[in-house]
Design a protein around this nucleic acid. Sequence first.
DNA 1: TTTAATCTTGACAAATTTACTCGGATATAT
DNA 2: ATATATCCGAGTAAATTTGTCAAGATTAAA
Lengths: 149, 149
Amino acid sequence: MKLSTKGRYGLKAMFDLALNDGSGPVSLTAISERQGISIHYLEQLVSPLRKAGLLKSVRGAQGGYLLAKLPAEISVREILELLEGPLAPAACVTDEKNSCSHSDLCVSRMIYDRIYASINEVVDNISLQDMLDEQYRNLQDSIPDMNNK
Amino acid sequence: MKLSTKGRYGLKAMFDLALNDGSGPVSLTAISERQGISIHYLEQLVSPLRKAGLLKSVRGAQGGYLLAKLPAEISVREILELLEGPLAPAACVTDEKNSCSHSDLCVSRMIYDRIYASINEVVDNISLQDMLDEQYRNLQDSIPDMNNK
DNA sequence: TTTAATCTTGACAAATTTACTCGGATATAT
DNA sequence: ATATATCCGAGTAAATTTGTCAAGATTAAA
Ligand code: FES
Ligand code: FES
């Protein structure tokens, strides 16, 4: 029931891109160094994100990647779903197949449906901008005596 | 982000046991035939459930397994967590380890925490009894013209 | 124009996890 | 006794994950 590194690294990469949003293209080398992910592996993650229109790429020297939309317009769900597939606990939730039981009425499936819905409720409502805001809040808190006498 | 067959089959097996609750021990052979799961594989699933006190076993001929508690007292979370481990989307949510980032403040982790909480919210509040109720409701609905003139 | 940086693609491979299978021991009702 | 069960620990084949690598295309800058 774990996300794979694809989803986790991909989200980290997108967040890194969001942090550097507006500063021109960011090279995979830079992301690789900051986040500790192999460049070659990053290439795999970034490719579907670009094809789906979440990223734009700039080729050639000084090139790299940049967000195709505003951070507020990119949800965590889009990112994770693209890299992991549907965030469902069982295939039958999103596939047409009757799967396990002969009948259409499967009680287990009701549970998996509900889990799927609750996960989506969370990731649908978090954007990269929300992550940036959270990061900023964390940085504020890590400066302990800021508002003390 | 999928459950493994361990969790899915285990839940099915427990539901099967709940359906036959009160009718004496149910053999793995019977569950195997009804649910289409290999007996040897079922043994693996049932073993931790017994050790955790969710099931009781009766050895020897005419033996089998039965629920150790009332269906209302066994939650889907207990079952799945026992067979799958914590239903968290990343290891750092439940392990002590700082994991990905050097700092304790990881924005990704905030997201994973929230997903974890929302999954548990669902599975904590569904018991085997709830599944039985749902099953009964489904059976009622499948008799179409019951309340028609 | 040359060079260097970077994206792009696809194939390949190691490591890990999943999803089982198998053999044999132990226990008990008939 | 015998048939029917649970128990227990190995072992294993397939699938998935987690990368690596090589070769080529594109473009910016010198
Ligand atoms: S149809 Fe998917 S669990 Fe039953
Ligand atoms: S600490 Fe787990 S995602 Fe950052």
